[in-house]
Nucleic acid binder design. Structure first.
Lengths: 182, 182
DNA sequence: TTAAAAATGTAGCACATGCTACATAGCAAG
DNA sequence: CTTGCTATGTAGCATGTGCTACATTTTTAA
C-alpha cells in the first residue's frame, strides 16, 4: 500500500468512526479535516473532492456493517419474536443511536433522489435484511418478508419517534406478541 | 385580517404547497422567496426570521394533515389488516410521496437534536397515531400500540427502501397477514 | 549530493448563507 | 401639503462553503 493510500485509509477510518458515533451531521470539509486531525488543504490533497471523501467513508461503514452485526449477535438461529427483542435492545442502546441517525440521514437524502446516497442506503438495507433473513428460524418462504417487516417496523420507530425512541416500546412489544407463535 | 397577515398567509400557502410537492429540500431564504414569488428582503419583512417562516409553513402542513386523512378515508372503523392495506395504497401513491419525503427530512433533522424540528415531528406523528387509533376496530387496550406498530412499519419502508417503495410490498403484505385474524 | 517528487502551510477566490441598513415610493390622515 | 406609516428595491456585511494557487519544507531516488 502506497503512503498516499495509507493516509487515505487512516483518514477514512477516523471519519467512519466519527460518523458512526455522532451521525452524519456537518459534512463541511473544514469540519471533516478537524475530525480527521488534519487540514482541509490536506484532505483535498489526498482526495479529489468532498464527494470522494464521503463515498470512501460511507463505503467503509457500509462494508463493515454486517461484520459488526455478526459480532454482536453470533449466528445461531432466532425465533422471530426473539430477534425483534434483541434488535430492539441494540437499537435502543445509545451506542448504536448515532449509526441509526446516520441511516436516517442517508435515507432522507436518498429519497430526495440523490443516486449516490441511494446506492449506499440500498447496500446497507440489503445487508441488514440478508443478515436477518439468515438468522430467522422460520420456513424459507417466510424468511425474507418477515425480515423486511421486522427491520422496517424497527426503523419506523426512528421516523415516528426521532426524539425519544423509548416511545417505540409499545409498538415493538406488540410486534413481538404478533410474532409469538411463529 | 390585516394586510400583513393576509400576505403572510399567502406566502405560507405557497410554501406549504411547494414543500408538500417536492419535500423540504433547500430552505435558504433566497430560495424560499423565489418559491413564494417575492424577495428575500420581503420574506424577512413579513416574518422575523427564517425559523418563523418554517414554523408557520410546517404548522400549516401539520394542521391540515388529519383533515386530508379524514377526507380520504372517511371515519368508519377499519379492521387492522384493512387499515394497513388502505394506508399503504395511499403511501404508495405518487401524490403523497412528497409529503413522505418531507416527513423523512424532518425526522432526520429532529434525530440530529434540532428541537424545532423535533417538536414538529412529534406533533405530526401524534396526529397520525391518534387518527389511526380512532379508526381501528379493535379493543380499546390494543388500539394505540397497534396504531403505532402499523404506522412505524409503514414509515419504516421509507427508511429501508427510499429509492423504490414497491420493494416494501412484501413486508406490508406480511403485516397484513399477521393482522388478519384480529 | 543533487534533482525530482511528495507533503504541507498560507492565503485567498468565488459563491452562498441569514440578515440588515438605507433609501425610496405609495398612500392615508390631519 | 405635510406627516407618518406601509411596502419594496439596492446594496451590503459577516460568516461559511468547496476548492485552488503558490510557496515551502521534507522525503526519496540517482
Amino acid at each position: 500500500m502506497s503512503k498516499r493510500d495509507a493516509k487515505r485509509a487512516e483518514i477514512v477510518g477516523k471519519l467512519a468512526a466519527h460518523f458512526i458515533e455522532v451521525g452524519l451531521g456537518d459534512t463541511g470539509v473544514r469540519r471533516l479535516a478537524e475530525v480527521a486531525g488534519t487540514s482541509d488543504r490536506m484532505l483535498l490533497y489526498y482526495f479529489d473532492n468532498k464527494e470522494e471523501i464521503l463515498a470512501a467513508v460511507l463505503g467503509e461503514i457500509g462494508g463493515g456493517f454486517t461484520d459488526v452485526l455478526d459480532a454482536v449477535f453470533g449466528t445461531k438461529p432466532l425465533k422471530p419474536a426473539d430477534a425483534v427483542k434483541k434488535i430492539w435492545e441494540m437499537v435502543r442502546d445509545e451506542a448504536t443511536a448515532g449509526q441509526l441517525r446516520l441511516w436516517l440521514d442517508l435515507s432522507s437524502r436518498a429519497s430526495r433522489g440523490d443516486p449516490f446516497f441511494g446506492a449506499i442506503v440500498e447496500q446497507m438495507a440489503e445487508g441488514w435484511i440478508i443478515w436477518l433473513t439468515g438468522m430467522l428460524d422460520v420456513s424459507d418462504r417466510e424468511k425474507r418478508p418477515l425480515a423486511e417487516l421486522i427491520m422496517s417496523a424497527i426503523d419506523g420507530q426512528m421516523v415516528l419517534f426521532p426524539t425519544d425512541l423509548t416511545k417505540g416500546d409499545a409498538a415493538v412489544a406488540k410486534l413481538q406478541q404478533l410474532l409469538d407463535d411463529l
